[in-house]
Design a protein around this nucleic acid. Structure first.
Lengths: 128, 128
DNA sequence: CTAAACGTTGCCGCCGGTGTCAAGGCAAGG
DNA sequence: CCTTGCCTTGACACCGGCGGCAACGTTTAG
């Protein structure tokens, strides 16, 4: 499978695939042309990469999952390294959620204050 | 007040202040030296900027708040434009929270699945 | 006179995943 | 032969808020 086909089937661009390969996430043989030749299995790998990227993982985080797939497992998340990353990411997300909730409260408070203040000055202006 | 003093009093760097000025967030007169001379009032402005940045606003978001302060209001958030930004940001945060919660659930689920799977194979390995 | 400690402008680097263009090789059909 | 459409590598652009350096002017103190 050439890079264009893989890109199309995976719903991404050739640029992106070359980038993944450059960073060791996907693999290819080279035809005598110099063209990359991809195994069918790489399609699954690319899907895994894309799914994890979409969730907020970066390429380094994703590496263990790919390795896990290559090791023959049905899913990329069952290997110890992947689980470790999952744990870490879950922690990160929880931390982020906590911070965001704090921010949300602040914003909400500030918004209410500002509106209250505006309504007060509105009263002052309309009933002087 | 020279830029160094303002930086120190605001707890930031001269580089940062020049950046803010370049982007129209703070103002200065120029002495005959060519040195920037800042009003006391700019200190409050810088504090407002820093506080909002810390919450996750970008410089464009912050502009209305600065304008509000300059208009003579005690706080930067009471003007209509600021309120609009607050609303928008609150929405953004809510959206982000929703997405993050979804991600959290997925991660949690995936983590539990992976662990369950590992324990199964662990059993298989330890009791064959 | 000089060194230190300020100030000035301007420009590159970073981070990460891609878009995008350049300049070229290869395959296949008219 | 020419075009079309693949493919190749390499390199710049982006986004945003700075850090950091260069190269140079000013002020002050010793």
């Amino acid at each position: 499978m050439l890079i264009g086909e893989l890109a199309q089937r995976a719903g991404t661009s050739t640029r992106t695939l070359r980038y993944y390969e450059q960073h060791g996430l996907i693999r290819s043989r080279r035809s005598t042309n110099g063209y990359r030749a991809f195994d069918e299995a790489e399609l699954r790998v690319v899907h895994e990469i894309r799914a994890l990227l979409a969730v907020g993982f970066d390429l380094d985080d994703i590496r263990p999952f790919v390795a896990c797939l290559r090791a023959g497992h049905a899913t990329g998340d069952v290997c110890p390294d992947s689980v470790a990353v999952l744990r870490r990411k879950l922690d990160e997300v929880d931390t982020c959620l906590a911070r965001l909730n704090t921010v949300r409260e602040k914003l909400d408070h500030q918004l209410n204050e500002a509106i209250a203040h505006r309504e007060k000055s509105c009263l002052r202006r309309t009933v002087p």
